[in-house]
Design a protein around this nucleic acid. Sequence first.
RNA 1: GCUGCUAUAGCUCAGUUGGUAGAGCGCAUCCUUGGUAAGGAUGAGGUCCCCGGUUCAAAUCCGGGCAGCAGCUCCA
Length: 586
Amino acid sequence: MAEENKEYTFESPEYRKTYWHTCSHVLAQAVKRLYPEVKLAIGPAIEEGFYYDMDSPFPFTPEILEKIEGEMRKICKEKLKLERFELPRIEAIRFMEEKGEPYKVELINDLPEDAVISFYKQGEFTDLCAGPHVDSTGRIKGNGIKLTACNAAYWRGDSKRQTLQRIYGIAFPKKEELDAYLARIEEAKKRDHRKLGKELGLFTLLDEGPGFPFFLPKGMVLRNTLLDYWRQVHKKYGYVEISTPIILNQELWHRSGHWDHYKNNMYTTVIDGEDYAVKPMNCPGGMLVYKTEPHSYRDLPLRMAELGLVHRHELSGALHGLFRVRCFTQDDAHIFMTWDQMEGEIQNVVRLFDEVYSVFGLSYQIEVSTMPEDHIGEKETWDFATETLKRAIEHMGKDYVINEGDGAFYGPKLDFHLADSLGRTWQCGTIQLDMQMPERFELEYVGEDGQKHRPVMIHRVVLGSIERFIGVITEHFAGAFPAWLSPVQVKVLTVTDRADDYAKEIAAGLDAQGFRSEVDNRNEKIGKKIREAQLQKIPYMLVVGDRDIENKTVSVRHRSGEDLGAMSLDAFAAMLKAEVDSQEIK
RNA sequence: GCUGCUAUAGCUCAGUUGGUAGAGCGCAUCCUUGGUAAGGAUGAGGUCCCCGGUUCAAAUCCGGGCAGCAGCUCCA
């Protein structure tokens, strides 16, 4: 773009990338001016902003980042022209050696034989770079730049190599846009499920069990309500439910292949001198249940669901609230079927996903994950399974992207990434097609022809992990769950203690109809009770005072702030029932 | 696991150059009986994450560990 003399619009994704890419060069230039001893690695533009990886003998503190920001603003003011030039490989290497940039030398060495080796020069600073860039550092708005963080990153993404320091930044052509961006980040932090989980009394994580969440009474109501719904919808889609043990003999895990491919993440124990393992997945248990009796083709597809508690030893640094834990409940199911049933059954699962996600107002993006390096089975089987998955969703008119080499060790999968209300995505649902486990466990069914055949299997989860899903919807709803899910649906607030008995009657009446209510009859003013119920994001507040006692009414307030006025308890209950039954989001 | 940062009351946080601790909220008691987002007073509550070191003296300085946060790696 530097070469072209056209109008720039920041709204175009290409130009944003170019703009941010130049910012990363300005960042590197600023660092080299202030700290010449720092070695440069790589500095690209990313989805939102840019970063530069550097090898520095000292950590970049927030104070240092501010200093660097200041220098960056100066560089913008200097309006340095960006000029591109090329060098033959030998000269390019010598050039970077002379500058004392070993990481750049390594990058050049690893470029393909026929690569054009280009550089961009701005003032005294030159960087190895394929471009493109804006034509002058004057294009960058100095006070629209913010260095947001400094963190560690491995050189070339390899955990065995040098740890570098990565400075992240963001930049906009207008200061107001930067402020809006920073405000959005602040908003996201308010929705963080770890913060809301504590404030709303949903769950907690304690030192005594890192990565092992505790569910508190309110979180448990939410969880059980979610699971009631889950059972109801699975019944509708023809599933049966099973439960298999958490600890099983290690021999089973050898047979399933988990031991060879997953043992680093498995917890083990010894019982009566024999080795056992805590299950990291539910499938082997499901296989064993399938084998407890002979099956006819008439039984298929057999859809066996299991809310299975699995344990996985995740790296300590990977733990993150309920999103990444060491023990979680998968809303698993294993579907056994004939080859003919595959496509239809995959689509049946996708329809179930659509129904469930739409209840929460969640949209998704599908990824097709293909054969990983570390896999079992033949490539031909994998190709067939992958094609079947793709074809099934293509016939439903669904879009997808390919995630090369990210499949499970036993088969390819469709991953459903859910976007929360801030546009961040989390993998929840997955549909995995498996032709390996039925083989390893020698599963059979008797066909129409009276012969034994091998079924095919689908592994699938909709919510993914109950824990993660609760985290996702907590952020998605910012803690204001729809009435059907809210741990407390109604809070009855007394104006004076003369209303105590009446309030208890109201709450008892609601409880009798299956609603979840609480009474706040503390010796506090009504304004304070409302404020607290509001902060707890309770959908409905029923204010009861002398007027209500006299008129046999409740004064209804919704958490949106709307005053719905006085009405009879029956009228309110009917309204709430309609809202709960429809699973309305409001 | 790696790099950096953080750890003080149930929660959110102060704590000056080393002299064994404070606020607000919450909780308890009392006053107050107040109609749609915080009424007032009093009081209880702390092994300053754990272990070790320096020092007459450590919440504070140093080392090690556990945990959390950010990111990287990983997420079958």
